[in-house]
Nucleic acid binder design. Structure first.
Length: 280
DNA sequence: TTCCAGGTGCATA
DNA sequence: TATGCACATGGA
């Protein structure tokens, strides 16, 4: 075990397998904040945790510690995954080294569905601010933070309410999708095969192939998925393409056939690697 | 001012 | 099946 769980905290003993910056800043979660002292506050559904550093160790503190043990996917061996991916190509070796502490979070389906509808043609800073506005507008006040809204709470919002928050053309997508979800048990999607799950998700308004992949990956931990966005397009054309390719379906097909059931992991290492490098 | 952001939906050929 | 364009908004 690389971590120790107690009643209200988890101590990460091996920081080669857990780096908060890598985990939180690789684009899979929008509800986190870095504090002035370097610690992080992370929110998911109606739960909250803080991550602080103590020498070579990280401490995750929360009153819902079992939830966050699962949330951070602590039972998966990422050393093994990185080792397999590194052997695939030089760029994967570099990417897994660069984002060595990445872990794919296990997040609530409803929160991922709404958040990634908001993500369409949007930038990460703005997605974060819109998700936070949504929580403040109709999520439960937990004292020191606002919970992500429940389906019932989301159902109280009109298209105009959503527009006033700044959702733009996504307002009607969210409005329509939360209504469709009244008839659906989102936990039932856990038992589906990859294609069936993606197919269902794409029947929802505002969800196309890329957003469906993100939801499957971050809410259902389906590692057969490889979301292709502008950044993955850059990754593909920089490191994998024989000739320039803009067709995202073709890019996805080739990359999933390269990485198989480790696709989701590979996607996050590559996304984080390319995006951070281009920022500099 | 113009461009761009973790795309999708819809019309057209 | 494939391509092109509109869609809101705010930061760089």
């Amino acid at each position: 075990m690389f971590y120790k769980r107690e009643s209200n905290k988890i101590t990460i003993l091996d920081n080669a397998q857990f780096v908060p910056q890598h985990i939180l800043e690789c684009g899979q979660i929008f509800r986190y904040k870095k504090q002035d002292d370097g610690s992080y506050v992370v929110c998911s559904a109606d739960k909250r945790a803080t991550i602080t550093q103590n020498g070579a160790e990280y401490i995750i503190s929360s009153k819902d510690i079992e939830y966050f043990e699962n949330f951070f996917d602590l039972k998966t061996d990422y050393a093994k995954i990185k080792s397999v991916l590194s052997a695939k190509s030089d760029i994967l070796r570099q990417a897994t080294q660069f984002g060595s502490g990445i872990r794919i979070l296990r997040q609530p389906p409803l929160e991922m569905i709404v958040s990634f509808i908001i993500s369409a043609n949007n930038n990460i800073a703005r997605i974060q601010s819109l998700v936070e506005k949504l929580c403040q507008k109709c999520g439960t006040n937990m004292g020191d933070f606002f919970a992500f809204p429940t389906l019932d709470q989301l159902l109280t919002l009109s298209v105009d309410d959503l527009r006033r928050m700044g959702m733009g053309f996504r307002a009607k997508y969210i409005h329509s999708t939360v209504r469709a979800l009244q008839q659906k048990n989102l936990d039932g999607l856990r038992d589906m095969q990859t294609d069936e799950r993606l197919q269902y998700l794409q029947t929802l308004s505002g969800i196309g192939p890329k957003v469906a992949d993100c939801i499957a990956l971050f809410a259902y931990h389906d590692m057969n998925c490889f979301p292709v966005d502008v950044w993955v397009e850059k990754v593909y054309n920089s490191y994998f393409a024989k000739e320039a390719q803009k067709n995202r379906a073709k890019i996805r097909k080739e990359l999933t056939s390269t990485f198989g059931e480790l696709s989701g992991y590979a996607q996050q290492y590559l996304f984080y690697f390319k995006r951070e490098l281009d920022k500099r």
